[in-house]
Design a protein around this nucleic acid. Structure first.
Lengths: 348, 348
DNA sequence: ACGGGCGGTGACAACGGTGTCAGTCTATCC
DNA sequence: GGATAGACTGACACCGTTGTCACCGCCCGT
């Protein structure tokens, strides 16, 4: 016995009413079951579940959204990234969690320094239940205010300042950077160049601070001329390295605040005919794929990006569901990854 | 005079009813205006638009979706990418078009070879109005069939086979590859290694065919031992290069089917102490950021990824709106980009 | 003057769920 | 044995749009 033989395509998706009818209960009870509400007899629940399975019922998100005032979707805001693999991993981590909880993931890439109203429009157009904000845009007060004002929950990833009014997740950039510099000191380097990251990112200053702190702990004076600005991208790293390598008393090691810049340093050294790592040790940060694509492969600091992103999404969903009512800041440890781009001065 | 002073947060978003009341028309007329339907007097239209502006009205997508059976959102399906920048550019291109047309972009990353039912679940859960499929997953008959069966419009990006039943967009891999090989022949190379891409991608065979065709056109016989497999990722490129460089009569040039593999070739050459480009010319494909991050920078073929993605989204939206009823295949020209990784044999 | 067509508009019923509230049915306690 | 407090269930309004259809007025041709 076939149903609906005339309707050849689009086999008329089952609705909650069909399920209710089949299970011999009211639509409200079906609603209770699919929303995991309490106070449904196990027998009833099972009967409903069976009807759901038989009819391959999937609740209509539009109807749910309309009646329940939520969309079961969250947005991910990010600014045009330099390190593509970074945002890709963020995306993977967030998506996994969304997937697991039946949420959809809406993307909101943005140009550099997007207008507040553009972000607000995204909120009103999509009505996402919450947002994951990446650095550096997640720090902007106008954005956090706009979200707060509209009661849209959000979680920041790697914010510059840890504001107890909000929830955030990030790596321990400070400690990671300190460990890295310590590694170079242990190898015997005394003149270490440092290329800063994009100052709009909190990670940039945290990594610099870790470096400086480590030098001080080891009783070294800081040579200002060895601390140079950068923007987290390959080009700026290369340019900064050329500057450092042109110094009369040039450094025997250079720490770049991320791997892309470190790759720039390597190319700069190659252009200048400087042997790696014998004449110059190079280190990065992030342990992005780039770190393995250079020659020699990069010593770097691994931050668990996917895990950080998952945690951010997890915290966001908890908040959305009202399972948590206090803001937290989660910090993840970084791990030093030693490869062939660093060695004792003079050693190949 | 203030409205709603008690309701401090969430200023009670305006609905179509509020707009109708303010403009002195029925809600249906407002609906007509915001959907750009015909048969509304210009005067009326303007009056409604003004009310919309004053109240900052944005239609509720859930209500729209429920009543109108469409979600104003499209999905982007992609499989875990090796070249992160590639998918990032695809995303940018698709997003721009969505943005311009008021559509939301839902992401559906997937593991390698996802189950059909996972994709189907994505469709029924999100009820997107259409899908953009990237290679290689966009080629899978089970996926295209599932979409067709459910009347979900889709557009393929860089499919392996051009099926006239569907719409697709992609670069001219064949011609691009031919141009690249020609460049090497012009430089005087006669033994050219070729590293193939992931065989699941149509681009892989198209690029190989372009290479072979070029050799034949120049009256050269094809040395099978110079054609080796690869998977589009750095590691496989490096491994393949090691194999080619170990040949007794080793090639003076290697073409990799994409930039990541070419980066692998460069590292392999460096490991083997082979001078670039004097002893070995290397070329890639795509002109990804990687191409500029190697030393020497890569000669490659640029494909207009963002443009391709935009076009795909554009075609998809046209189809969704019923503005087009015939399937097309759009091909974009590639451009040879010569950098320092290629030179005449023996020349630095 | 009349009927027919068409541009312009509104009333009203969907769309498929959730929230509220009232009701029934047990088990428990005096 | 009756009162009472849960556990469990359903009726019904409502969420904010779009689709359908009826209607009104006006212009046109005869």
């Amino acid at each position: 016995m076939q149903e609906n033989t005339t309707n050849r395509h689009t086999p008329a998706r089952a609705t909650i009413r069909d399920v209710a009818h089949r299970a011999g209960v009211s639509i409200k009870t079906v609603s209770r079951v699919i929303n995991h509400e309490a106070n449904v007899r196990p027998v009833t629940r099972e009967r409903v579940m069976e009807a759901v399975r038989e009819l391959q019922y999937e609740p209509n998100p539009a109807a749910r959204g309309l009646a329940g005032r939520r969309t079961f979707s969250i947005g991910l805001l990010y600014e045009n990234p330099h390190e593509f693999s970074y945002i890709q991993q963020i995306l993977d981590g967030v998506f996994d969690v969304c997937q697991a909880h039946g949420y959809a993931l809406l993307l909101r890439p943005s140009s550099e320094n997007p207008a507040t109203e553009d972000i607000v429009r995204f909120l009103t157009q999509t009505r996402v239940d919450g947002m994951v904000l990446t650095a550096p845009i997640g720090d902007r007060p106008d954005i956090t205010d706009a979200l707060t004002e509209r009661d849209v929950p959000f979680v920041q990833i790697s914010p510059g300042i840890t504001d107890t009014r909000w929830t955030s997740v990030g790596p321990d950039d400070f400690a990671g950077s300190r460990t890295l510099t310590e590694h170079l000191l242990d190898l015997g380097h005394t003149r270490i160049g440092f290329i800063q990251g994009d100052p709009r990112h909190g990670a940039a200053s945290a990594r610099l601070d870790g470096h400086l702190q480590c030098l001080r702990e080891h009783g070294m004076t800081v040579d200002e001329s060895l601390i140079v600005p950068g923007l987290f991208d390959f080009e700026s790293g290369k340019a900064a390295a050329h500057g450092l390598l042109a110094l009369t008393d040039r450094p025997t090691a250079i720490v770049a605040s991320n791997d892309d810049m470190a790759a720039g340093v390597i190319v700069a050294a190659q252009e200048a005919g400087i042997a790696l790592p014998a004449e110059l040790s190079v280190a990065g940060f992030d342990d992005s794929p780039t770190a393995l694509h250079t020659w020699p492969p990069l010593t770097t600091v691994r931050q668990p990006i996917v895990e950080i992103a998952s945690q951010a999404a997890e915290l966001l969903l908890e908040w959305i569901r009202g399972e948590r009512s206090v803001h937290v800041r989660k910090t993840f440890d970084c791990r030093l990854v030693v490869r062939r781009s660093t060695s004792a001065p003079g050693v190949a």
